[in-house]
């Protein structure tokens, strides 16, 4: 006996959600792999200083209450 149309639709929808989940997982694995390949983990000590620059250098407090 063939399933009712609504059940067929839901089987298809759940398959879609499952595939979306796989894409989700795949993209996370790809991002992790890209991070390693592009050297994101090579020198974490140096990279922790990426937020500082000549305008807002390390060692200088950047915010205080106004007078």
């Amino acid at each position: 006996m063939s399933p009712a149309p609504v059940e067929s639709f839901w089987d298809l929808s759940l398959l879609g959600v499952f595939l979306l989940g796989l894409v989700f997982l795949g993209s996370a694995i790809w991002a992790l792999s890209w991070s390693r390949r592009s050297g994101q983990f090579d020198d974490l000590e140096r990279d922790s200083r990426a937020i500082f620059d000549a305008d807002e250098p390390e060692g200088v407090i950047q915010d205080r209450f106004p007078q």
Binding site: F41, L44, E45, D47, S48, R49, I51, F52, E56, P57, E58, G59, V60, I61, Q62, D63
Partner: peptide, 18 residues
């Protein structure tokens, strides 16, 4: 971003943040 930025010192362990 703001805690190390305003203090002017890098995060304690960047490895842990990753």
């Amino acid at each position: 971003y703001f805690i190390p930025k305003v203090l002017g010192r890098p995060i304690h362990s960047y490895y842990l943040s990753v």
